[in-house]
């Protein structure tokens, strides 16, 4: 589903990703773990198409199409969703307005009919309820003054509404207490499906207790240095990343 071949990327002329290769088939959840500065967030941003993240080599195909050829919003409409480590505050734009604009923009680009207001509201209500989000919160400007947990729940709400084919979760566990982590993880798990892939980027094994990966990859200094099953996360938790730092250098 998502195929990354020998990807190199630079931010402000500094090379961060140094030949990263990764395959995530549909229906699987892969975790990327690694120390600070390994390039984890850069990978998410590069895949989403953030300006100033220059792809200097390699290729990325998504469902057989060249992903890097597409604009940011085209990647979203093709089904890619990047959940931010720190979701941005959007002053003046009610969450509902934001979400409906996003959803209809995607539908328009895909040549689908726009969602009507009643259909939209019905679905938002259902999803919000499952995530314990109050409808009043959705009338407030998106993420403005929301707690860390509320922002992450808003991210999951957006995923559930936009129904992307592939999710990149960038440090979704940061800023969450144990209860919020459970609500958010349950929300993500509810989205697991045979035709959907996920890439879970995290520092800690903790999140992977809740969102169980099929594969774990260790990212150090811009490269995948080791891949394995879920047990690899436990090994990393016990021994740290030090053993890999020499390998990548």
């Amino acid at each position: 589903m998502l195929s990354i071949q020998n990807l190199t990327a630079a931010v402000d002329a500094k090379t961060i990703l140094k030949g990263l290769t990764l395959e995530v088939p549909a229906g699987e959840v892969h975790a990327i773990m690694g120390p600070n500065g390994a390039g984890k967030s850069t990978l998410g941003y590069a895949l989403a198409g953030r300006p100033n993240y220059d792809i200097t080599g390699g290729s990325v195909t998504f469902n057989g199409e060249d992903l890097l050829d597409k604009e940011v919003h085209e990647r979203a409409a093709a089904g890619l969703y990047l959940s931010f480590q720190y979701p941005l505050e959007i002053p003046g734009v009610p969450a509902l307005t934001f979400l409906r604009t996003a959803l209809n923009s995607q539908k328009k680009l895909r040549g689908e009919a726009e969602v009507t207001a009643p259909e939209f509201l019905k679905k938002v209500r259902e999803v919000a309820k499952s995530l314990r989000i109050d409808m009043d919160m959705l009338k407030r400007p998106l993420n403005v003054g929301f707690s860390g947990g509320e922002k992450k729940r808003m991210e999951v709400l957006q995923m559930a509404m936009l129904e992307p084919k592939f999710l990149i979760l960038d440090e979704t566990d940061s800023g969450l207490d144990i209860d919020a982590l459970k609500v958010v993880s349950d929300g993500v798990n509810a989205l697991r499906a045979p035709d959907r892939g996920m890439l879970v980027i995290t520092h800690y094994q903790r999140l992977l207790d809740h969102i169980k990966p099929d594969q774990v990859h260790v990212l150090v200094a811009g490269k995948i240095v080791r891949s394995g099953g879920p047990e690899l996360a436990l090994e990393l938790e016990a021994h740290g990343y030090d053993q890999y730092l020499g390998v990548a250098a």
Binding site: V93, F98, L99, S105, P141
Partner: peptide
């Protein structure tokens, strides 16, 4: 903020319009 809106599927003019109007 502009990039954030775009990752959710809005094209750049739509995202700009949303943000500046909201301002």
């Amino acid at each position: 903020a502009l990039f954030f809106c775009q990752t959710r599927g809005m094209d750049e003019p739509t995202a700009r319009a949303l943000l500046t109007h909201a301002f």
